[in-house]
């Protein structure tokens, strides 16, 4: 085998192994440039309403918003791409929590100041029952007593 051929086979094999890493290395470089320039390229956090934060299961954001003064007892818009129905909706955070069938979210919102009238509770119980969220139904009924 000539030296030139040897060189080519070694080069081709080395490049075949290393070439795919151009993508993650570029990604890392992009992250670093953004870090230095304060651009936050891979940490884009969209602004959410309280009900949207609930829909995407973002408990931390829900708490942040409530503590920043967002009212957990009013209805907030939910964009179509964040809604389970695929349609834009206007929901209270508690309605959103029932919609995603997550008891811990219902409890979190109640802890953070969400309140229900008897009629609202009844509506939420009906909705939870329709969605097969037995734990939420039990919790809401127990809380009423």
């Amino acid at each position: 085998m000539s030296e030139r051929l040897l060189h080519r086979s070694s080069l081709a094999a080395s490049l075949a192994l290393a070439a795919p890493f151009v993508v993650p290395l570029s990604l890392s470089l992009y992250v670093l440039v953004g870090w230095v320039s304060g651009g936050n390229p891979f940490w884009t956090v969209p602004d959410l309403t309280l009900s949207e934060a609930t829909m995407v299961r973002d408990a931390g954001e829900a708490v942040r918003l409530i503590r920043a003064g967002h009212d957990p007892n009013r209805a907030w818009p939910v964009r179509a791409d964040l809604s389970d129905s695929g349609q834009p909706e206007v929901l209270t955070p508690l309605e959103a929590a029932v919609q995603i069938r997550r008891l811990e979210f219902v409890q979190l919102l109640v802890r953070e100041g969400a309140r229900m009238t008897a009629a609202e509770r009844s509506t939420l119980v009906d909705r939870a029952r329709r969605l097969g969220a037995g734990d939420i139904t039990d919790y809401l009924q127990a809380a009423a007593q």
């Binding site: 940490w43 884009t44 956090v45 969209p46 995407v56 299961r57 973002d58 931390g60 954001e61 708490v63 942040r64 503590r67 964040l82």
Partner: peptide, 11 residues
């Protein structure tokens, strides 16, 4: 922790 806004997995 709460004030460190983090993108949700959905995003």
């Amino acid at each position: 922790a709460i004030n460190r806004r983090t993108p949700a997995p959905r995003f």
